[in-house]
Every structure is written in structure tokens, then in C-alpha cells.
Design a protein around this nucleic acid. Structure first.
Length: 204
DNA sequence: ATAGGGATTCTC
DNA sequence: AGAATCCCTATT
């Protein structure tokens, strides 16, 4: 698996193209990570760690490779991959995934508006909805747990195809963090991918 | 445009 | 203690 212990922005870039596998009683779902955002420690005014260690964000301070799952706006879940060395807070938010397998189950959980399969995981909360992720998975080992784990596409040395390249932009929804942190280009995506949550500035 | 919804953190 | 805030989505 990709090295997650280094700088969080590098980890966020490196996770693009990796697979998320979710096993439940109703079967297996697989999706490919196509968009991420890096979040740092207390110095990062956009991060959940900006107020230091709390009961909610404690897992961010743990070893790399754990899941940090939280509830946002009272109704949506977001999945993060904890990064960096143990004792330092950082995590990569999974902002969008492209469904690969188990799509029928993802569709079943959707609202009645329907939509193309590509959009089922387009957005941090939709990714969790598609993969049936909630806070019961907070803190699990994403390389060992039987319910949810990260994997590489079989038979691919590189996570990205030759035709794919990475675009960057400012993180979404973090204006409160002040200009320095709000504009930092810590959002990463596979350029022009149909499952992106929304366009990148450089990728119109 | 805005309702929807609840935990978390801040401010007395 | 009460109030404000929040890495969003679906619907109007």
C-alpha cells in the first residue's frame, strides 16, 4: 500500500487510484479513490485538529492507516485515512470514489432522484453512503479490518493509468480557516474524472 | 435558495 | 448552562 506515514499532502496524492473495499452481510462493494483532501495538525486552521486533541479527533493522532469517520452537519458521514507519524495529527479526507463493484447495493441506498452510477460516490458523504460507512468504523485498521480496507488494483504497479494525471486546488468548504489555509492547494483529484465531487479550478 | 439534522466545541 | 458551528446533500 501507499506510504501514509510521510507528509499528509503527499499521502493525499498517493491515495488517488487506490481501492476501498467494503464487506457487509449483503456482499462486497469496491470503489476507487478519485479525489482527496489533506488535513494537518493544530497549525492547519481547517483541520479538526485545530483545537488540539479532543475525544472526536483522537484517532487522527494515532498511527497511519486507521479510519477516522465523523458525522458532519448532523446527517452525513465522512471517511478519512489517518496519516503521518503516531503522535502527530493528520488525515486524508476521501472526497470522491468511483464505484467499481457492488453498484446495485449502492443504488439501493440512494435517494429517489437516481442518477448515473459515476455519481454514486461523488462527494465525501456520498462516498460513505455508497459504501455504507458510519461511525461504527471509526478507528479501525484500514489495512487489516475485515469490514473495510484499502487495496491496490490487481495487476497494476501504478495506481493511475498512463492517461490519467493529477489536478490540485483549494480545499472545499474551509473558508473559515483564513486565507493562508483556505487557499492552500491540498485538494487532489484525477483530472476530468466523471466521479469528481465538483470541478477543479484548473480542470473546467 | 434552503431545509434537514445532531454532535462537538466555544463562550459565558 | 446555552449558543454557535460544522470538511454536505437533496430538493425547491
Amino acid at each position: 500500500m501507499t506510504d501514509l506515514a510521510g507528509p499528509v499532502d503527499e499521502a493525499a496524492r498517493a491515495l488517488l487510484g487506490a481501492l476501498v473495499v467494503r464487506d457487509t452481510a449483503s456482499g462486497r462493494r469496491v470503489a476507487r479513490i478519485v479525489e482527496t483532501e489533506a488535513y494537518g495538525g493544530p497549525e492547519d486552521r481547517a483541520s479538526h485538529a485545530r483545537f488540539g486533541r479532543t475525544t472526536r479527533n483522537a484517532v487522527m493522532y494515532g498511527p497511519a492507516g486507521r479510519a477516522y469517520v465523523y458525522l458532519v452537519y448532523g446527517l452525513h458521514h465522512c471517511l478519512n485515512v489517518v496519516c503521518g507519524p503516531e503522535g502527530e495529527a493528520s488525515a486524508v479526507l476521501i472526497r470522491a470514489v468511483a464505484p467499481l463493484d457492488g453498484v446495485a447495493q449502492m443504488r439501493f441506498r440512494r435517494g429517489r432522484s437516481g442518477g448515473a452510477d459515476w455519481r454514486l460516490g461523488a462527494g465525501p458523504a456520498r462516498a460513505c453512503q455508497a459504501l455504507d460507512i458510519d461511525r461504527t468504523l471509526d478507528g479501525i485498521h484500514l489495512l487489516r479490518d475485515a469490514r473495510l480496507w484499502l487495496a491496490q488494483p490487481a495487476g497494476h504497479a501504478a495506481l493511475l493509468a498512463d492517461t490519467e494525471h493529477v489536478v490540485t486546488g483549494p480545499r472545499i468548504g474551509v473558508d473559515y480557516a483564513g486565507p493562508d489555509w483556505a487557499t492552500r492547494p491540498w485538494r487532489f483529484g484525477i483530472a476530468a474524472h466523471p466521479s469528481l465531487s465538483r470541478p477543479f479550478p484548473a480542470d473546467p
